[in-house]
Amino acid sequence: MNPIEPIELADFKVGVDNVIFSVDTQQNRLLVLLIKRLNYPFSSYWSLPGTLVRQGETLEKAAYRTLSELIRVNNLYLEQLYTFGGPNRDPRELPESFGVRYLSVSYFALVRYEEAELIQKQSNFPSWYMIEKIPQLAFDHNQILDYGYQRLKSKLKYSPIVFDVLPELFTLNDLYQFYTTILGENFSDYSNFRNKLLKLGFLFDTGVKVTKGAGRPASLYRFDAPSFAPLKDQPLLFI
């Protein structure tokens, strides 16, 4: 009998990479937070913010830690995105380097630009980039970013993630501008958007009016989570 050759198992390190989207409704911009790498590999390339997972640390805590080191924000949405772990995605896997596979468990986050404060003391120059002007990034981060962008657009159509990011009280126009900044102005006209959402019954009119600019006063609404609960498991598209 021929001896069974031993199977060589990969030696892994696990990292977390964050796709942090910021919605600037004032200038109709969807932005992504990038940092500049200072060390090998891909020194001087822009990349998504990331970190290696520490001993005893959960993946989610690593994602929140990375985010909290770069921005201060009260209202945000964070969700695990996908695991990227193909061979040769990281030069450090090569035998002449470290010979270790690097898995990236990616997350995507959503914040409002006007609320998110960059922590500028960081040496890796955290900067907001418009989604249309993303440079060539380190590793496979362009692929991770594209995956996150597609997930974000999909989630907006059936999930109330936007209400984790907006202030507790908002106008319907505030809500519409948030969606159009991400999905584009052709996704729906305002009248259809307004009518469809109000018919679903999970937006509560507070009765309070606000005036913005020269227009007539607009009603302030809030998201009513108990009213949405019966809908969350249905195949629902609410925009």
Rank of each mutant, 00 (worst) to 15 (best):
L31H: 12
V32A: 01
I35G: 02
R37E: 09
L38M: 10
L38S: 15
N39S: 11
N39T: 09
N39A: 07
Y40F: 15
Y40N: 06
Y40C: 06
Y40G: 00
Y40S: 11
Y40Q: 11
Y40M: 10
P41K: 00
F42R: 11
F42T: 00
S43G: 09
S44K: 14
S44T: 06
S44E: 14
S44R: 14
W46L: 00
W46R: 06
W46I: 00
S47F: 01
S47A: 10
S47K: 00
P49N: 01
G50L: 01
G50I: 01
T51L: 04
V53S: 01
V53A: 00
R54L: 12
G56W: 07
E57N: 11
T58Q: 03
L59H: 08
L59G: 07
K61H: 01
K61P: 03
K61Q: 10
A62W: 00
A63E: 07
A63R: 09
A63K: 06
R65A: 08
L67W: 06
L70D: 13
L70M: 14
I71E: 09
R72T: 12
R72G: 14
R72M: 15
V73Y: 08
V73N: 10
N74L: 13
N75M: 03
N75D: 11
N75V: 01
N75I: 01
L76C: 02
L76S: 05
L76M: 04
L78H: 05
T83S: 06
F84L: 08
F84G: 00
F84Y: 07
F84H: 06
F84T: 02
F84D: 02
G85I: 04
G86R: 06
G86D: 09
G86P: 00
G86W: 00
P87F: 05
P87G: 07
N88Y: 10
R89M: 07
P91W: 01
R92F: 09
R92H: 07
E93D: 07
E93S: 10
L94P: 05
L94R: 13
L94G: 00
P95M: 13
P95H: 09
E96A: 08
E96L: 10
F98L: 13
V100D: 05
S104R: 03
S106W: 00
Y107D: 13
